[in-house]
Design a protein around this nucleic acid. Structure first.
Lengths: 136, 136
DNA sequence: TATCACATTAGAATTGTTCTTGTCAAGATA
DNA sequence: TATCTTGACAAGAACAATTCTAATGTGATA
């Protein structure tokens, strides 16, 4: 998430301590946190932090393209501060999500697109992470 | 979803009218229905149908590999009775999900797998469906 | 048809997310 | 720096999706 404080301000948004804390937590975070993960982490420094602020901020960042909302976890929303297109490994045991650097060249023939205007693609490799392999 | 009534019984499950109605609705359904879609459809014939029955049945079918739970819709669980591996087109406007017949040969080098035991993969092509293109 | 394990129902409970309302503070302006 | 205005915040209520609970009902087998 390349989002400096200046960029932030320039886009007409107020830079509040709460938002800075959320940004700091997201910056470089590769754990694909849920809203609750963000909330729990940021609350340590801001005990009065509200869930609404977390959701509002994430929603705003999403609208501005600064974070991406992930699918792949059916139980909760997960967010990725890495906005460069990339794919994921997903553990079906613990729902851990790991970034993939591998690139794939995927194209769909027009005949297969069902009239869709394709904007992007995302590959989910599913399997068991090392921890979950050990447990079973 | 190739699941005949005989297979159903043989696997030690009771075949109730409610379950038959759910199975009938799922059979050949390409709309990737949510639990509520199933509920609403089946309730027409079984006005006493309970949501719990829908969730229980879907969960059971999932456990037995007769349906697949989809990611791709962050707001609700969606189910696919087509258990043959295939990929999807997803409309970011209305969350319509369309099956793709196109096959891709995706392999990950061991070095890229982060120790995961890979079980499968799934590609989501995102974009706007024809209806949503018209609306914007 | 009697029995029993399992399925069903209705609604309560839980979880994740969004909305509302009153208050407050960041950044702008003078 | 003092004041103003707009948007952000906190707290909790509301909402939506899903899961659980307890009581009742029913399919399959003998």
């Amino acid at each position: 998430m390349a989002l400096s404080q200046e960029q932030y301000r320039e886009s007409g948004l107020k830079l509040t301590p709460q938002r800075m804390a959320i940004l700091a937590y997201l910056e470089g975070n590769i754990l694909h946190p849920s809203a609750e993960d963000v909330f729990r982490a940021v609350r340590r420094r801001f005990p009065t932090m509200s869930f609404a602020t977390v959701y509002n901020t994430l929603e705003m960042l999403k609208k501005r393209g600064k974070v991406v909302e992930l699918t792949g976890d059916p139980d909760k929303k997960r967010f990725d501060p890495n906005i460069r297109p990339h794919h994921h490994l997903i553990c079906t045991g613990c729902r851990k999500i790991v970034d993939l650097k591998t690139e794939f060249n995927l194209t769909l023939k027009a005949a297969d697109q069902a009239g869709f205007q394709i904007m992007g693609n995302h590959i989910e490799f599913t399997g068991l992470c090392p921890d979950c392999q050990r447990k079973r």
